[in-house]
Amino acid sequence: MEIKILGPGCAKCEKTAKLVQEVVAETGAQARVVKVTDMMQIAGSGVVSTPAVMVDGEIKSTGKVPKKGEIAGWLK
């Protein structure tokens, strides 16, 4: 499983990345967490508002820091 955190590196994006990594560690999910900070790539994935989270190419959340419960739901 591949989880992408899309965002230019602002405070919200860092927070999102941190939460996702925490949830991955807690649940022991087999997932690779990748940060995407390049504007071209972000816009190219169809994301309009950052931070956004993609799991295996599917946009799960945009424009907000997701809650831990939500993240855990995507990892199943």
Partner: peptide, 22 residues
């Protein structure tokens, strides 16, 4: 640029990760 991003970027709610809404 980094500092600009930081100052203008903390816009939306970072909700407490542990709190689940009921």
């Amino acid at each position: 640029l980094k500092s600009i991003n930081e100052t203008t970027c903390a816009c939306q709610v970072p909700p407490k990760g542990t709190v689940e809404t009921n």
